[in-house]
Each structure stands twice: as structure tokens, then as C-alpha cells.
Design a protein around this nucleic acid. Structure first.
Lengths: 159, 159
DNA sequence: TACGATGGACAATGTGGTTGTCGAAACAGT
DNA sequence: ACTGTTTCGACAACCACATTGTCCATCGTA
């Protein structure tokens, strides 16, 4: 053993741990949502619903918020609409626009997600202690470039 | 202002921050790789190359390591081979098997990635301080279920 | 009014994943 | 030595999620 013990972790472990943390939260969320009446909800849909919020947006605007093309956003809306989570309504003021709005089912899923996320954060807090968790959040906020804080999540899951 | 200041963050912010941290590292890695002679390298390929390592594996084994089907792994190998990062060689001991091996170019990319990851971790350490970064890593290790520490990364990027 | 920018639809394509099927090779049990 | 079972790799069909490019209707403005 000519080498001294390594106290620092390898650089490549950091993204792996971040990803694993993210995935464990998202997987747990969707397992919970599936049990509570939303088995068809996929991770990408959650991000889209979060991005359209309570007021509704146009597909183009949704694309901008998610960081994807308007076409991609439109397709996501198609799927969301087919599942009954969103609907398109004509815009009275602009005949080009169609506003995408969450249905009551969509709003329910959104509220449920928020609940589950609080519960999951609580689980982390129980493991780490509230103070340590807050430090992790502070640290992440400090290193993440502001632009990267968007809501886009691509296909990132494998669910 | 009837509400007291909220000191806790919302639960839904945690996955978002983890994802943003992950993405910022991966995006920076690939920007750097592109500049250093590997513009075609996509994030998913990096995970696959990491998983095959220096010895080489079969496509089936690669699928197992990545947590995907052997067919999916085989397709990734196809693309990696088309780009010159990997090659298939017949297995002398088993005529069914074809070992997938990194080419010198693949090994170069792998070594370069490791370098860049160290550099990126150094950047985080400079921002946070070495101690705080280590605490974040410790915390993540503590909350992430052991099984989730695999190398699978799906399509997660949007590159 | 004519022009440019915008919104949404459609098509073709790429990437990464899934099942299912299949033949060839390896292997274990009789 | 023969016979089933398992494994490997290949192929096909399909799905989810993204891309670019094109097109037309509409809106706002010079």
C-alpha cells in the first residue's frame, strides 16, 4: 500500500450521486402517484404540468419554459390531453392561440405531487437532520448556474 | 405580509436542484469534450463507456450494468462503434459472445472525461469550500438508496 | 395595406428505450 | 451421446421524446 488513503471522492462520483438523488425522489413520487390514482403520469408530464400552472399557457410559451421546441411541447400537450390532464381552449383575444389548461384531474395531480414532495423532503430531513438538508440545498443553490434552474426534464427517467 | 417568512424550501425544489446540478456538470463536461476533440460524444455514450471499462464486456452484460435491455445496449454499441469509440471482437472461448472493447479513441475520451470531472469538482470546491462539498457528498451518499447508485442514465439530457 | 413576427400544425428524422422472435452456441442431466 | 434449457446476438416493430424545416392563418405595426 504505497498510496495514502484517499479522502476526497472522485470527480465522476458527484454527478452520479446527484443523479441518483434526483432519480430516487422522482421514482418515489411516481410510485406514490400511481398508488393514489395516477398510474399513467410520467415524469416528463409532471414538469410540463408544473410549467403550465393554474392559468394555462400556449404551447409555444410552454416550450420556452421547458427549454424545448414548441413542437415538442405541443406533442407533450397531446399526450397530456389524451390522458385527461390538460385541454386546449381557444383564446378569445387571439385566433392563433390555443391556451393549454389543466383539467381538474390535472390540478389534482399537481396538488398531490406537491404533497408527496413535501413528504419526501421530510424523509430526507429525517435521515440527515433538518440543518444538514438545508445546507445541502444552500450548497446546490450556490453552485448551480441560474439559467440551469429551468423546468426542463427531457426524457430523463426510464420509467 | 400576514405570512411569516418561510425558512424551509419547498419539497419540489429539491429534485430540481439536484437535476440542475447534475445537468450543469454533464453539460460542462460535454462542452469541454467537444473542445478537446470529441464533439460527437453524447452523455449516454459516456455512461456506456464507463460501464465497459478497459476490459470490455458483452452487450448483454453491458445492458445489465446500465439497467437496460440487451437490445438497447446493443444499439448504443452500434452508435459507439460507428463513431469509432468502440469495436466488437469475437470471443475465442465462446462463439456466441462478441466482446465490446473501447478503441484507443474511446480510452482517450474516457481518460479525458475523468480529468474534466476532477476539474469540475475542483470548481465546486472552490465555490463551496472543500469541506462543504464533502458534506454535500456525504449527505447524498446517506440518502441515496444503494441500488440507485448504478450507472444507468437513460436518455437524460437533451443534448 | 403590406410586411414581419408569431402560433400552431404537419412531416421527416434521430436517439434511446421497449417487447417479441429467432437461430446458433453452450451447458447440464439423463 | 442425446436432449432439453439457457444464453447471446441479431432483427423487427413499436413507443416516447426530442429535433429541423415547412406551411398557413393571424396579429401588430410601419
Amino acid at each position: 500500500m504505497s498510496e495514502p488513503a484517499r479522502t476526497e471522492r472522485w470527480g465522476f462520483e458527484l454527478p452520479l450521486m446527484l443523479l441518483a438523488g434526483f432519480r430516487s425522489l422522482i421514482d418515489a413520487l411516481h410510485a406514490e402517484l400511481a398508488e393514489r390514482g395516477h398510474p399513467d403520469l410520467r415524469p416528463a408530464y409532471g414538469f410540463a404540468m408544473q410549467a403550465m400552472g393554474r392559468e394555462g399557457v400556449t404551447a409555444s410559451e410552454l416550450g420556452r419554459r421547458l427549454g424545448v421546441s414548441k413542437q415538442a411541447a405541443g406533442k407533450t400537450v397531446d399526450r397530456l390531453a389524451a390522458l385527461g390532464y390538460a385541454e386546449r381552449v381557444d383564446d378569445a383575444a387571439d385566433a392563433r392561440r390555443k391556451r393549454v389548461r389543466l383539467t381538474p384531474r390535472g390540478l389534482d395531480a399537481l396538488a398531490l405531487s406537491a404533497e408527496v414532495f413535501e413528504e419526501l423532503r421530510g424523509r430526507w430531513a429525517a435521515t440527515l437532520g433538518a440543518e444538514r438538508l438545508r445546507e445541502v440545498e444552500d450548497a446546490l443553490e450556490a453552485v448551480v448556474p441560474p439559467g440551469a434552474y429551468r423546468l426542463d426534464a427531457g426524457s430523463w427517467f426510464g420509467g
